[in-house]
């Protein structure tokens, strides 16, 4: 396998808490190959967005990265001096956020915001930067881009604003785009347009995409591999087809089972995961899912299982699969 595009190792991002440090991302290992689309899924507060922000060095204070390394194209972003980091951020690694209205500047035209990004990273005269911006707006499907470039964010629909965000994320030809719930705020027919656009742009440019979402259907359609997070930890990582066919971690299985679209019959009770996600300062001992897990046994409440490889490209953090992991190791 080639060198990973992004290789996160042992990442810990923590917030100060009353009883000590609260680890919102805990010992996370995750890597992404060039041109790969990796889905990072989990429910609110599981640490999926914070992982992406940590990569960019943008963990919101007082949260900060406490340990680990984040290799991007072979260089550890956590030890890179700020000027070099600035060269990478936005240009080599970019981000698309959920709500384009709050991430665009309301007092500048969208064309100017796209053009400024070009001007900031490449030494181009203003007219040329503007022309590049207009061209990029056209590529992301903004109709009449030359005219629309002069519009302000509030004059555009939600779908068009998200296209502008995507133009900004891609105009510097990055190697990695982290898209955090890029279609969650959009209506379903607009969501379909934006997902289609992202898919085409990804295939054309070969950019790697870390797709962060709570929506498993979006991942099923967009990603080739996915990683499931729970309380700051990775609990399962697998090819998308494999995980949807046979989820191994009981949490991943529970998430899939409770989707109404996958219910065997309409109007019947849906399978549920009992209880709620525990707050970070009240995590159970042992496996963090043990208090909600239908298959938990004594050992689960005593020690936390490691994330072990059970098959090539397939890792799971669950004692139920440790034997399988041992056999896989022996076979290798």
């Amino acid at each position: 396998m080639s060198q990973p595009l992004l290789d996160i190792k042992g990442l810990v991002t923590a917030f100060p808490g009353r009883g000590g440090e609260l680890r919102a991302v805990d010992e996370l290992d995750l890597s992404l190959q060039p041109a790969e689309v990796l889905g990072l899924v989990g429910e609110s507060g599981c640490g999926k967005s914070l992982t992406a922000l940590s990569v960019l060095g943008l963990a919101p204070p007082p949260g900060r990265v406490r340990a680990g390394s984040i290799f991007f194209e072979g260089r550890d972003l956590l030890t890179l001096p700020e000027p070099e980091l600035r060269q990478i951020r936005g240009a080599r690694v970019s981000m698309v956020f959920q709500e384009p209205m709050t991430s665009l500047n309301p007092v500048f035209s969208v064309g100017r915001q796209v053009a400024e990004l070009v001007a900031a990273h490449q030494d181009l005269p203003p007219a040329e930067a503007w022309a590049r911006a207009v061209e990029m707006l056209g590529r992301v499907g903004v109709p009449e881009p030359a005219a629309r470039a002069r519009a302000y964010p509030h004059q555009l629909s939600g779908g068009l604003r998200q296209r502008v965000m995507i133009a900004m994320a891609l105009i510097l030809d990055p190697r990695l785009v982290m898209a955090d719930e890029p279609t969650t705020a959009l209506d379903v027919t607009i969501q379909a347009q934006i997902l289609d656009l992202l898919r085409r742009l990804q295939q054309d440019s070969g950019v790697g995409v870390l797709l962060i979402t709570h929506n498993l259907a979006v991942v099923a359609q967009m990603a080739s591999r996915l990683a499931v997070m729970y309380t700051g930890r990775l609990v399962e990582e697998a090819p998308v087809a494999g995980l949807f066919a046979e989820p191994l971690h009981p949490y991943a299985a529970g998430l899939l089972a409770c989707l109404p679209a996958r219910a065997p019959r309409r109007g019947q009770r849906l399978p549920t995961i009992k209880g709620v996600v525990p707050p970070l300062d009240a995590l159970p001992p042992g496996c963090k899912f043990s208090d909600r897990c239908p298959r938990a046994f004594a050992a689960c409440r005593e020690a936390e299982p490691d994330l072990v490889e059970v098959a090539p490209g397939r890792r799971v953090r669950c004692f139920l699969h440790h034997d399988q992991a041992r056999q896989a190791r022996r076979a290798a």
């Binding site: 629909s157 779908g159 068009l160 209506d187 379903v188 027919t189 607009i190 969501q191 379909a192 347009q193 997902l195 289609d196 929506n215 498993l216 259907a217 979006v218 099923a220 359609q221 967009m222 998308v240 087809a241 949807f244 899939l256 989707l259 679209a261 996958r262």
Partner: peptide, 24 residues
Amino acid sequence: ALFHSAPIADPTRQTRPPALMGDV
């Protein structure tokens, strides 16, 4: 269009290309 726009929670079945262009 509404029905076919929703992504399918099954990687073995492909969502159709977007049925609708433009905004409401």
